[in-house]
Amino acid sequence: TTYKLILNGKTLKGETTTEAVDAETAERVFKEYAKKNGVDGEWTYDDATKTFTVTE
């Protein structure tokens, strides 16, 4: 399944996708990605669109 991440950081904005077996796995991948890019904020997930959003 393809999951999407929307980054709404103070200095970094953008989108990325990952293939994962479930939302929990995708969330771990995306949180590591955000951490590596210095983005830390509020996380939300929309199951209907398989989209995570992190907003600083």
Rank of each mutant, 00 (worst) to 15 (best):
T18C: 09
G9P: 03
K50I: 02
G9Q: 04
T25G: 08
T11L: 15
T53S: 07
A48P: 09
T25L: 06
T49F: 05
T1G: 09
V39A: 03
A20Y: 03
V29E: 08
T11H: 13
T18A: 10
D46K: 04
G38K: 07
D46E: 09
N37T: 10
K36N: 13
W43Q: 01
T2A: 06
T53W: 09
T53R: 06
R28A: 15
K31L: 08
D22N: 15
V29A: 12
R28N: 07
D46V: 06
V54C: 06
K50N: 06
T11I: 10
A26W: 01
Y3L: 01
A34H: 01
K31D: 02
K4M: 07
T17H: 12
E56D: 08
V29N: 06
K36H: 15
G9W: 05
R28L: 12
N8V: 11
T11V: 13
G41T: 02
E32W: 07
T18G: 03
K13N: 09
L5M: 06
E56H: 09
E42N: 10
T53E: 05
D40S: 13
T53K: 06
T55W: 15
F30Y: 02
T49Q: 07
Y33F: 12
V29Q: 09
V54A: 03
A20K: 03
T44L: 10
T1N: 09
Y3V: 01
D46S: 07
T25W: 08
T51S: 05
A26N: 00
V54N: 02
F52G: 00
V39F: 11
E56F: 10
L7K: 01
A48V: 12
N37R: 12
W43G: 00
V29I: 11
E19T: 14
T16F: 15
T55P: 01
F52A: 01
V39S: 03
E32P: 02
R28H: 09
T16V: 14
F52D: 00
F52R: 00
W43Y: 03
E42D: 08
K36M: 14
V54L: 11
E56G: 05
T25H: 15
I6Q: 06
V21F: 11
T53Q: 06
T25N: 11
G14V: 15
V54R: 01
G41P: 01
T17S: 09
A48L: 13
E27V: 07
G41L: 02
R28Y: 07
K13I: 12
E42S: 13
T49H: 07
E15H: 11
T51F: 03
Y3P: 00
A20L: 03
A26S: 02
K4Y: 14
K35F: 15
R28P: 03
Y45I: 02
D40K: 11
T44Q: 12
K31P: 00
F52H: 02
E19H: 10
N8I: 12
G38I: 04
V39K: 02
E56M: 07
T2S: 09
E27L: 11
T18P: 01
W43K: 00
F30M: 03
T44V: 10
D22Q: 04
T53V: 10
E15G: 07
Y45Q: 01
E15K: 08
T25Y: 08
T16W: 15
G41Q: 02
K31H: 09
T25E: 15
G41V: 02
T51Q: 04
Y3N: 00
V39I: 12
L7N: 02
T1I: 11
E42F: 13
G9Y: 06
V54S: 02
L12M: 14
N37I: 14
A48W: 08
T51M: 04
K13S: 12
K10D: 07
A26Q: 00
D46C: 07
F30T: 00
D46T: 05
A34M: 04
T17P: 02
E19V: 13
K50W: 07
T51P: 00
T18D: 03
L7G: 02
T17K: 07
D47M: 11
A48T: 11
T16K: 07
K31E: 04
A23M: 11
I6N: 04
T25K: 07
A26P: 01
R28F: 11
V21D: 13
T2Q: 10
T44G: 06
E27C: 09
K36I: 14
Y3T: 00
K10V: 13
T55Q: 07
N8M: 13
T16E: 06
Y33M: 04
G14A: 15
T55C: 06
K4I: 11
V21L: 14
Y3C: 01
L12R: 12
E15L: 09
V21N: 13
E24Y: 14
T49I: 07
E27T: 05
R28I: 09
N8W: 13
D46A: 04
G41S: 02
V21E: 13
N8Y: 14
A26H: 00
I6R: 06
V21Q: 12
D47R: 05
D46P: 00
G9K: 04
D22E: 05
V39E: 02
A20V: 05
T1P: 09
T25I: 08
L7S: 03
T16D: 04
T18E: 04
L5C: 06
E24G: 10
T11K: 07
E56C: 05
Y33I: 05
T18L: 13
T2L: 11
K4W: 13
L5A: 03
T51D: 01
L12N: 07
V39Y: 06
F30C: 02
T49V: 06
T17I: 10
V54T: 03
L5E: 00
T18Y: 14
E19Q: 10
K31S: 05
N8C: 06
L7T: 05
K13G: 06
K35D: 07
A23V: 14
E15T: 11
N8H: 11
E56I: 08
T17C: 06
A34G: 03
E42K: 11
K10S: 12
K4P: 00
V21A: 12
D40A: 12
A20H: 03
V21T: 12
Y3E: 00
T51Y: 03
D47V: 12
T17Q: 10
T49E: 06
D40I: 14
N37S: 09
K50T: 04
L12E: 06
K35S: 11
T17L: 10
T44M: 10
A26V: 03
N37P: 01
D40L: 12
F52L: 01
T18M: 14
E24L: 12
T44I: 08
E24R: 11
W43N: 00
N37M: 15
T17Y: 14
K36W: 09
E19K: 07
K10R: 14
Y3H: 03
L7M: 14
A26C: 02
T11R: 11
E42C: 08
T25Q: 14
E56K: 03
G38T: 04
F52I: 01
D40Y: 14
A20E: 05
A48H: 10
Y3Q: 00
T55N: 09
N8Q: 11
D40T: 12
N8L: 13
K13M: 09
Y3K: 00
K36V: 13
A48S: 13
A34N: 03
V21P: 15
T55E: 07
E19Y: 13
T1L: 11
L7R: 02
K13C: 10
K4G: 04
Y33H: 05
K13D: 05
D40C: 09
T55Y: 09
T44E: 15
D46Q: 05
A20M: 03
T25P: 02
T49K: 07
E32V: 08
T53D: 02
E27Y: 14
A34L: 07
T1C: 06
T16L: 15
A34D: 00
A48M: 12
D40P: 04
G38E: 06
E56L: 07
A26D: 00
A23E: 06
K4H: 15
K13P: 05
T16A: 15
V21S: 14
K35L: 13
T18K: 04
E15W: 13
E56T: 07
T18W: 09
T49Y: 05
Y45E: 00
T16R: 12
F52P: 00
G9A: 11
T44K: 08
Y45S: 01
N37E: 08
